[in-house]
Every structure is written in C-alpha cells, then in structure tokens.
Amino acid sequence: MGLLTDRGELEAERLTPAGERILRAASTLFYERGIRTVGVDAIADAAEVTKKTLYDRFGSKDRLIAAYLEQRNRVWHAFLDDQLAALAPQTPADVILALFAALTDWMAESRRGCGFINASVELAAPDHPAMPVIVAQKQWMRSEFMAQAALGGFADVQELADRLLLLHEGALVCFRVAAMEYAPEVAHRAAADLLAGWPRD
C-alpha cells in the first residue's frame, strides 16, 4: 500500500561540505533555540565557517531558514516511509491511522513540537521565503488524508480530510503549547473514532 501520493517535495540542493555543515548547524540551532534568537554568527561558529562562507552558500539568513525547513520536510517524509514500512498498513484507513501513530514516535524525538508551526509563529511576514515551504508541508498532509480517504471509499473526502488535519495539527499545538504530552495518542484515538463512524460512498 503506497503512502506518498503527491509529496510536492522540494528537491535538495547540492551543497558543498561547508554548506552541509552550515545547514546542519542551523537546523539544530533553529529548532532548539528558535529562529529569531539565533544569529548568523552563532551558526557560522557552530559550523566552523566564516560568515562570508555562510552568505556565499545561502545568500541570506532568510534563505537559510527556508533551507532548514526544506530539509526538515525531507526528514519527515523519510520518517513516514520508515514508519509505514514497519507498520505495513493494509487499507487506506490503516494508512491514515498510521500517520497518526507515527506522530507519537516523531514527537518523542521532537520535544519542542512541530518545527513548521514554530517557524510560522516566528515568521510574521507572509512573503518570507520560508512561508511557501511551511504552507506546502501542511497542504501535503491534507492532500494525503484526502487521497487515502478517496481510496478507502469514504464519502465527502474534503470534509473528512479537513477534520483529520485539524486533529493532526491540533495534537502538535497541544503537545507544545499546552504541555499535553499524550496529545498524539488522543488524536490517534479520535481519528479512529472519526473513521469508524464516517459514511462511505
């Protein structure tokens, strides 16, 4: 049973070893400390490069932020691939529930919550280079819920996908903001109940 019907995923840019170190350092610092509190000096120091090298490779801090989120998106998709391979869902409904089950394991390693949601809060400007990456990641989740719902023969797949996305993203917010560590498990149970009672075509 395939999962990734349409990733809409950005291709990874070819980076020099210095560029890879910069992106790795920025990814750690942005996620752990927050995007706005981390300056290019701290990133350059952590990557053991000069600021000039950082700007040569990425052009600006804003473009580096976008690259960080693009990389996080690729990691998320690879994680889902591994989770689906391990869980081996047999039906589209199983795939949907596997996405929620994966959230529990993902959050166990991501104690500061969703990097995309965190970034959207910090980046107020709608024209920031990272905003299309954030929007695309959330749109992909909704489209995947909709695609699997259609494959499963569920009725009104747009409405069902909207509700599933609200459960999924709500769990991420509650985990981070409300210190609700069990939020992914609650969302998983709620999604199971929703699917069980949803009409089919």
Rank of each mutant, 00 (worst) to 15 (best):
A88T: 07
A88K: 07
L80R: 02
W106I: 05
D41K: 11
F145P: 00
L99K: 01
G113R: 04
A150Y: 03
L80I: 02
L80K: 02
G152N: 12
M131R: 14
P132I: 14
L165S: 15
V133H: 07
I96G: 00
V173R: 08
D105Q: 11
V133I: 15
T104R: 06
T104S: 13
T50Y: 03
E48L: 03
L172C: 13
A155T: 13
R163A: 14
P89F: 03
H128Q: 06
T53I: 11
A161E: 10
D156F: 10
A119S: 03
G39N: 09
D156V: 08
E109N: 13
T53K: 10
A44E: 01
D105C: 09
F58C: 02
L103M: 13
K52R: 13
R63M: 10
L151E: 06
S120Q: 13
G113K: 07
V173L: 14
F154K: 03
D127G: 12
G113Q: 11
I43Q: 01
A101W: 05
G115F: 04
A86V: 01
I134L: 11
K51I: 09
R72P: 02
H168V: 06
I65R: 01
A93C: 00
F79E: 00
N73S: 15
G170P: 00
T50G: 08
E144Q: 12
A93F: 00
L172V: 09
L164V: 02
I117Q: 15
A161H: 06
L80M: 09
I117M: 11
H77C: 10
F145A: 13
K61N: 04
L103A: 12
A171F: 04
A150N: 05
Q83A: 02
L84A: 04
V95W: 01
M131G: 01
F79K: 02
L166A: 08
S60L: 11
H77L: 14
P132K: 13
Q148V: 07
P92M: 04
F145H: 06
A85G: 07
A88D: 13
K52Y: 10
